[in-house]
């Protein structure tokens, strides 16, 4: 019975997002513009290094750019969520009265919203990349299946991690500062502007010790065929580890936060 509830919430999130068509169009314009700027800079970087830079040739760089741009609508890199607002205003007290798990319900809705965003923002971005610049693709069909799994896990990790920012509000009330911090760090370490393969060793180590590459870099690596075979299974395993860790942390934070909950105003 309970699983069906969360599936329904997932579908509700999906349908809610489908009503904001103009917003989706605006997002697509932003994706394409930033994508073309990244193409100009990173292609030039690959070409001046003699056609290969840190394992990236032009086609693979193109895949990285357009798949990661396409993911932007589905990955929460702003740190802002509905649940954060509800915790700040105290509305979450009403959510606790409902016969669902506040944490899982919030994550299910966010994941539904994010999966929908793949249609108006993800697919067109990849199409622009494939038509205008050309892209590298994996050699084996199995990589697409694994890539789809990895993509879904990326969306889930994003939702469960950003939930923790909102949950910090049980103690801090105002989480805007934390959200800005999250916004700055998550995009950079997820590999939004530069693939983390180009980072110097120490910075690469810092990035891989966080859940952020699981949100963008890893599925992109699998879908572009940069990482193949056993290594790609390892990546999915790492994503599963981060899903487990962040879900556990979210459950813990929600339970102890509930005891600290202050309802604002009356």
């Amino acid at each position: 019975m309970t699983v069906r509830t969360y599936v329904r919430l997932f579908v509700a999130g999906f349908r809610r997002q489908s009503t904001y068509r103009l917003a989706a169009f605006g997002g697509l314009v932003a994706n394409a513009t930033f994508g073309l700027l990244k193409v100009a800079l990173l292609f030039a970087a690959v070409r001046t290094s003699g056609g290969e830079l840190a394992g990236y040739d032009v086609a693979m760089m193109s895949s990285y750019i357009w798949i990661s741009q396409g993911l932007l609508g589905s990955i929460n890199l702003s740190g802002r969520t509905d649940i954060a607002d509800r915790i700040r205003t105290g509305d979450v007290a009403v959510d606790f009265l409902r016969p669902v798990d506040v944490h899982l319900a919030s994550v299910a809705t966010e994941v539904g919203r994010s999966v929908f965003a793949l249609i108006p923002r993800g697919l067109p971005s990849v199409a622009i990349g494939a038509v205008v610049v050309g892209m590298a693709v994996p050699d084996h069909a199995s990589a697409y299946v694994l890539g789809a799994v990895s993509l879904f896990l990326a969306i889930v990790v994003s939702a469960t991690t950003v939930y923790l920012v909102g949950a910090a509000g049980f103690w801090l009330v105002e989480t805007r500062g934390v959200a800005i911090l999250y916004m700055v760090v998550s995009g950079f370490l997820a590999g939004l502007f530069v693939p983390i393969g180009l980072f110097p060793g120490w910075l690469h180590a810092v990035a891989t010790a966080t859940p952020f590459p699981s949100m963008m870099m890893y599925p992109v690596d699998i879908l572009s065929g940069r990482v193949e075979g056993l290594a790609s299974l390892g990546i999915v395993g790492l994503q599963l580890f981060w899903v487990g860790t962040t879900v556990a942390a979210g459950q813990l934070a929600t339970r102890s936060g509930r005891r600290r909950l202050e309802v604002q105003g009356g």
């Binding site: 904001y20 103009l22 917003a23 169009f25 605006g26 997002g27 314009v29 932003a30 394409a32 513009t33 930033f34 700027l37």
Partner: peptide
């Protein structure tokens, strides 16, 4: 634009 604010972000922040 109202809801389509992100379209202008492409040019301001882009």
């Amino acid at each position: 634009l109202v809801d389509g604010a992100e379209a202008t972000n492409a040019f301001v922040y882009g």
